[in-house]
Design a protein around this nucleic acid. Structure first.
Length: 612
DNA sequence: CTAGGGTTAG
């Protein structure tokens, strides 16, 4: 009779995983796993040791496994500690594995490292299972570097693909996607063959870092290895392509997927939202409903965000009502996107009402509300709200929230306040102002017509100004009619972004305000001759719940970057990119040869054209 | 190791 069924009086729900060849007919403890607690342990231990049952390793394993499946991870650790104290049993690799995994789930690096020491003492640290449990434990406790150290100090042959996957996942969890990619790179150099989990994690790392080439390499590896494009791999691919700005490729993967669940749909929809294809995002949401896939909070959050950015208030309201009717929208991300949507659509009262009704607010909540006030011209309210947030110490401000604060100052003409907050962000919160913050400050000074001060501010910036900074200055020149400064800013923009229309449109506007019509004409014809063109402005209008998209100027000289590159030859960047693709192509062929894979798979796949 | 999608941005 196995220990489990005696403990549990034969009820299958309890300890159902216990299996053992031992057939002693003794009831030790009659408690279901779900209500097993620390107070049962001494009883369990004393009865078991008295009966002599638990001194047999297979039974220890069974009990451990059952206890580890229970609600409290610390229970298996306590059980082991008691066992070690009252019997002279030594732990084997299996028991250690359970104990270390329990420490990982707690998570407690203090407990975990004690078992690490114990495994070293027992010479079990190079057992693959123990090793992987240790790596996972350090990763879960947010010590990815320690995890890496464990892997690196393990003897040859002890680690396997799981070890590397755990390392990569650990770096991702710790917010270090570059380290994850680096580890992937090192992994390809050792004799460990990657699997689906590897690619899944690496795709996430590529999405976060915008590492297009490695992302595409992963796609190629999925195909080459013959991995199925299931919902998991598919979603990661879609999300990687979308986050790297290649929505077309994302769409191609998405369209080719044999089956799609809510995560696949949401990946595709958010891909569209993030690249400004709001109408497509909403069309996809409709297609998803037609396909009978039920939306969840993540879907709603991204679709609502699209509505906000398009100004589709009716659809946004519909989604709000849809949430209430379907028991959705409980999560903060949805509330946040609703607040953002209402304030972007101008219904700031509704936005604030939702904000006030929340019992919990995160940094997004405060950011969208502050930004909402700022965008609707309620600059004092925005600053008051920021002060309120600082007083409540519910969240720590981040860089983005300061963009909202600075925008409020800029729109309200509050120069002093602007400087005040700009300095506070680094002094009080240790946040390093990014180029966006400098952009805000230039905008602030420009709007306040302090052009000389703005110019000086740019000169003293510790980072190189980008086009947006110069464009803010250029925009400010229009109101003040500062032609000389405008021309200077236009030159800078031209230098930074030679193939775009740059500041020419704005410059011609400056000329226009000063009635220099000959110059206006020169700029315009110059733009035509050099084939630089401005992307048409795009707007949306909602009629009876339908979204219509309009482009300014139908005959506009809209050209995609691809056409531009064909016309004007390959620039240095493109050469570098081609080289990278070439390098990866060689690596891929080597990989295929090494593992004896037929390369034809790659050549015939239409989705990997760049490699061939 | 058992994974994948979501809200803010000058």
């Amino acid at each position: 009779m196995c220990l489990s069924s005696r403990i549990l009086n034969g009820k299958t729900r309890y300890f159902s995983t216990l299996r053992s060849s031992h057939t002693e007919n003794k009831c030790i403890l009659s408690v279901p796993v779900s209500s097993l607690s620390h107070r049962h342990l001494p009883v369990l231990l004393s009865r078991a040791t008295v009966s002599g049952l638990l001194l047999k390793l297979p039974l220890v394993h069974s009990v451990l496994r059952s206890v580890s499946l229970g609600p409290s991870p610390s229970l298996s650790i306590s059980f082991l500690s008691l066992l070690r104290r009252f019997t002279n049993m030594t732990l084997d690799n299996y028991s250690l594995n359970i104990a270390i995994s329990a420490a990982a789930r707690l998570p407690s690096v203090v407990v975990g490292s004690q078992f690490h020491a114990l495994s070293l003492k027992l010479s079990l640290a190079s057992d693959t299972f123990v090793l992987n449990a240790l790596i996972n434990m350090y990763s879960s406790c947010n010590y990815p570097a320690a995890a890496r150290l464990v892997l690196d100090s393990a003897p040859q042959g002890a680690s396997d693909v799981v070890s590397w996957n755990t390392i990569i996942a650990g770096y991702l969890r710790g917010g270090m996607p570059n380290k994850a990619l680096q580890s992937f790179h090192q992994m390809t150099k050792v004799q460990v063959r990657l699997d689906e989990v590897t690619l899944l994690n690496v795709l996430v790392a590529c999405a976060r870092t915008g590492t297009t080439k490695v992302g595409r390499l992963c796609h190629a590896l999925v195909v080459l290895n013959g991995f199925e494009i299931n919902c998991y791999i598919g979603s990661s691919l879609v999300s990687m392509y979308a986050k790297c700005g290649m929505v077309e490729d994302a769409r191609r993967v998405f369209n080719g997927m044999p089956e799609r669940n809510v995560v696949c749909w949401t990946s595709m929809i958010s891909g569209c939202t993030q690249s400004g294809r709001f109408k497509e995002a909403i069309d996809l949401f409709r297609d998803m409903q037609i396909a009978g896939v039920k939306a969840d909070d993540a879907t709603i959050a991204t679709v609502v965000s699209s509505c906000g950015q398009m100004g589709a208030l009716d659809l946004g309201r519909y989604l709000h009502a849809y949430c209430d009717g379907h028991g959705l929208g409980k999560e903060l991300a949805v509330k946040n996107s609703l607040i953002d949507m209402y304030s972007k659509c101008g219904d700031i009262k509704k936005a604030y009402r939702i904000f006030c009704g929340l019992t919990k607010r995160d940094v997004f909540t405060w950011t969208v509300m502050i930004m909402g006030f700022a965008m609707n011209g309620l600059c004092v309210e925005a600053l008051d709200l920021f002060a309120q947030m600082e007083g409540e110490d519910e969240v720590i401000p981040n860089e983005v929230i300061f963009l909202g604060v600075l925008t409020a100052c800029s729109h309200g003409g509050l120069v002093e306040q602007g400087y005040h907050h700009f300095h506070r962000m680094s002094k009080v919160y240790n946040l390093v102002p990014r180029i966006e913050h400098y952009g805000c400050m230039v905008d602030l000074l420009g709007r306040a017509k302090l052009l000389a001060e703005a110019e000086q501010f740019i000169k003293e910036m510790p980072i190189a100004p980008d086009v947006v900074v110069w464009r803010s200055l250029l925009f400010a020149c229009r109101a003040s009619g500062q032609v000389g400064l405008a021309e200077y800013a236009t030159e800078r923009i031209e230098q930074l972004e030679p193939k775009r229309c740059g500041g020419h449109v704005l410059l011609s506007n400056v000329y226009a305000t000063t009635s220099r019509w000959v110059d206006v004409n020169n700029v315009r014809t110059g733009m035509d001759n050099s084939r630089t063109s401005k992307k048409p402005g795009c707007s949306f209008i909602e009629v009876d719940g339908c979204i219509h998209e309009f482009f300014a100027g139908d005959e506009s000289h809209f050209e995609t970057e691809a056409i531009y590159n064909t016309l004007f030859g390959i620039n240095e960047l493109l050469v570098a990119e081609s080289f990278l693709i070439f390098k990866y192509a060689i690596w891929l062929v080597d990989y295929a040869n090494h593992w004896g894979i037929n390369q034809q798979k790659l050549v015939t796949n239409p989705q990997i054209p760049e490699f061939i």
